[in-house]
Design a protein around this nucleic acid. Structure first.
Length: 302
DNA sequence: AACACCCGCAACCGCGATTTT
DNA sequence: CAAAATCGCGGTTGCGGGTGT
């Protein structure tokens, strides 16, 4: 397979690559095998010499990228789970486009994967809402609609599986206390989700084909739908009313709070407790809760 | 069936930071 | 200490599969 070639940074580099016969484009199985075997024996690092010594006609940079994003044994591929989505949204609101930093908090996920997720899914949401992804409007929507909705879904799935268990995700979020870390981290509540028959279930940005917490991300846009209930004239689909968050409360919140939505106003509207017990949003995203999400993700991997 | 368009993702690039020589 | 080599990050590109017409 011949590599597709992008733009060259310079004529010199082009010449050098022609002379050296540097390959570009998709990796073949043979190349993967060469790189994997070499790293297994000699370890990571010194990527330029890896490329040479392993007999790969690739740049060291390309080898490193291939290893880190694809071949590394602990790399976790496939669907972004709800918890991971939630964590990405939260951490991005803190750190912006610090993809590698965000990736450090999602075991097995690469910065590239998270970046792609953000660009393809989150930015698309902003586009559909006709606002900038960095605008206050979108950030508010994310924080006060999208993320609570994710929490609700995680909570719903968790509760349906672990009914009666004292240490559910919702309890944690409500109490905001890490007092029972051991129990929480060992409660595998989302792998065997059997609650797929819930007629009220609405897909988040995850796929409609499955309501597992590891459901595949789909183009479905609840965030946009919630927004359109007030912000757009085209919203006519009453089916969205089934959604846990596209309730009158939320649409009131959305409509009344633009553009100056604030925590206080939000919480007043949230007195019915659909976030669970009227917990403060500020408190909800403390270090402990992020820690909790990470623990759940680690648990996922086991 | 054929074509056009859209979208997700792997891989590339430039560049600044860090490490090695 | 300076230059070279390497690493790591964030942004961008374009292939290929899926979907719509």
């Amino acid at each position: 397979m011949e590599a597709h070639v992008g733009g060259f940074s310079s004529v010199n580099q082009q010449r050098e690559e022609e002379i050296l016969g540097v390959r570009k484009g998709p990796w073949t199985a043979e190349e993967d095998s060469l790189l994997t075997n070499y790293v297994a024996i000699h370890g990571e690092g010194r990527w330029n010499s890896v490329a040479r010594s392993a007999g790969l006609k690739r740049t060291g940079k390309s080898c490193r990228l291939r290893w880190l994003n694809y071949l590394r044994p602990d790399v976790r591929r496939g669907d972004i789970s709800l918890r991971e989505q939630l964590l990405i949204l939260e951490l991005h609101s803190r750190w912006g486009n610090r993809w590698s930093k965000i990736a450090q908090h999602l075991p097995g996920r690469t910065d590239n994967e998270i970046k792609n997720y953000w660009r393809t899914r989150v930015q698309k949401q902003a586009k559909q809402m006709k606002c900038d992804v960095n605008s206050k409007q979108f950030r508010d929507a994310m924080r006060y609609v999208w993320m609570p909705r994710l929490i609700e879904r995680i909570q719903a799935t968790t509760d349906s599986y672990s009914a009666g268990q004292p240490t559910s995700y919702s309890n944690y979020m409500t109490n905001g206390s890490p007092s029972n870390h051991a129990d929480i981290s060992t409660s595998k509540v989302y792998h065997n989700n059997e609650s797929g028959s819930d007629p009220n279930f609405m897909p988040e940005i995850s796929g409609a084909s499955s309501d597992s917490l590891d459901a595949q991300v789909s183009p479905g846009s609840d965030l946009t739908d919630c927004y359109n209930m007030h912000g757009g004239s085209s919203y006519t689909d009453n089916s969205e009313k089934r959604s846990g968050l596209c309730t009158d409360n939320v649409s009131e919140l959305w409509g009344s709070s633009k553009p100056g939505m604030d925590i206080q106003g939000f919480e007043q509207h949230n007195q019915n407790g659909w976030l669970g017990g009227g917990d403060s949003l500020e408190n909800m995203w403390n270090e402990e809760n992020i820690w909790f999400l990470q623990q759940q993700l680690c648990d996922d991997e086991v």
